[in-house]
Design a protein around this nucleic acid. Structure first.
Lengths: 243, 243
DNA sequence: AAGTGGTCTAGACCACGGC
DNA sequence: CCGTGGTCTAGACCACTTG
């Protein structure tokens, strides 16, 4: 086992175990080594192993049975999203078994609407940056992603922005802001004409919409995100351990 | 502080802190006592306090800042659902600010369709119990909840089933089964005629559908659940700490 | 009875933020 | 510099399942 100092030991254990599950070293439905065996093998304390196992269990990869053992969940491959990652669209796509890629559609500036100003704690009419991107699953366009960010937060020339980056990187590189938490509203809507332009599918069809508010340190709202996709193609499924 | 032996100390600490947030002892946006102070005050180890704080942070109630302190999330009241609880419809309703109640609509028996048999690992045509319930927010019907369970699992007279119980209790009391994990698919659909009969609203409107598969020990599928609701009335919003 | 996961403790050191 | 949260350890005891 190779210990890097960049990541926590618990996260490394987590990755090692996940790799073993993906590689079939630990087969679906089978029992994996006990906590003590793992802590011996990997040379870390049992508490550290437990931290990693807790994360795997929370995301449904493993099932823990007191007095019996820890088992690989047979239904790992039926989940597409994981807790703490609902906003990660690339992971949602790969969780559905496709290869994700991003196309940068456009970047614009316009005044905030009343509603946007309210949520972002701005004056109505303050300038916003509008970032529109399209996520692909293999070669198929599947998610239309819109983000609006107050122009006043920008810390770099607007032309520099690389629209293919993860939203986290965009905030760090061009806005010098760290996102501390997000609030996501899951909505059901009808496919609108503008979305239909990019996403193959009939207008009027029911689709999923993830409305996200990003907050920085000190609770300041940083940005809004609206992601729409056809859930008959891209499933949003979550595994949850029954506490 | 009153320590009961029925619940873990960490869970009790969790509840105490949550109560203080709800009661306004810890105000939104304000800093709460440090881990050491809490462990001193409550007479438990710092590790135990951390377990409780981690759960609160995962559900967005608090924000933790290294080198600074722990703060009550100002946006606590804007979330309606919590991780590990997506299936708890009563909590979803109360999270939206309403008083939840359940009306037992019907219980029936019918053969399984091909698709149901596949997911539940049954022979096609095996008998299912169909449980239909309606969840109210205050006096308004908001969620239509359908559950199907293999009849062969029933361990008590079908007439005894109390349709107002939590699905967890129903499984334990009448089927002698413990649910170990659930797989939830979040879908967008159009309001169908049968749902419209119970839920006020226009047919053809886009609504949310939670499709749940319940699994017991040893990975056996126990039941299917389909819950539909109008997300313009009942919001499904989740807070997530940005790890 | 033996082995598993579940809980808790006491103590240590580190990384970060503010003074 | 100090206090905060973040990480890790070693060891203990409990609750549960299985043989």
């Amino acid at each position: 086992m190779r210990i890097l100092q960049s990541k926590s030991i618990a996260n490394q254990v987590d990755e090692i175990l996940l790799e073993r599950i993906r590689d079939g070293i630990y087969l679906p439905g089978s029992r994996i080594p006990s906590e003590s065996e793992l802590s011996d093998e990997l040379g870390v304390s049992r508490a550290t192993v437990r931290t990693a196992l807790a994360k795997l269990a929370a995301n449904g990869f493993i099932l823990r049975k007191q007095g019996n053992g820890t088992y690989v969940n047979e239904h790992v491959n039926e989940t597409s999203a994981h807790f703490g990652n609902l906003w990660d669209l690339a992971e949602l796509i790969s969780g559905n078994g496709y290869n994700p890629s991003i196309r940068f559609l456009s970047i614009d500036r316009r005044p905030a609407t009343e509603k946007e100003a309210l949520v972002l704690a701005l004056e109505e009419g303050e300038e916003l940056i509008c970032l529109q991107r399209l996520f692909y699953a293999d070669q198929q366009p599947v998610i239309l992603a819109d983000n609006v960010i107050p122009y006043s937060l920008l810390r770099a020339p607007i032309e520099n922005i690389d629209g293919k980056l993860h939203i986290r990187e965009i905030f760090e590189q061009y806005f010098h802001q760290k996102i501390s938490f997000v609030l996501t509203d899951i909505r059901s809507t009808l496919m609108a004409a503008d979305a239909q332009e990019f996403l193959s599918g009939k207008a009027g069809r029911a689709i999923l919409q993830l409305q996200t508010i990003f907050y920085g340190k000190n609770n300041m709202p940083l940005a809004l995100g609206v992601n729409v996709f056809d859930d008959s193609f891209l499933h949003l499924s979550l595994a949850q351990a029954w506490s």
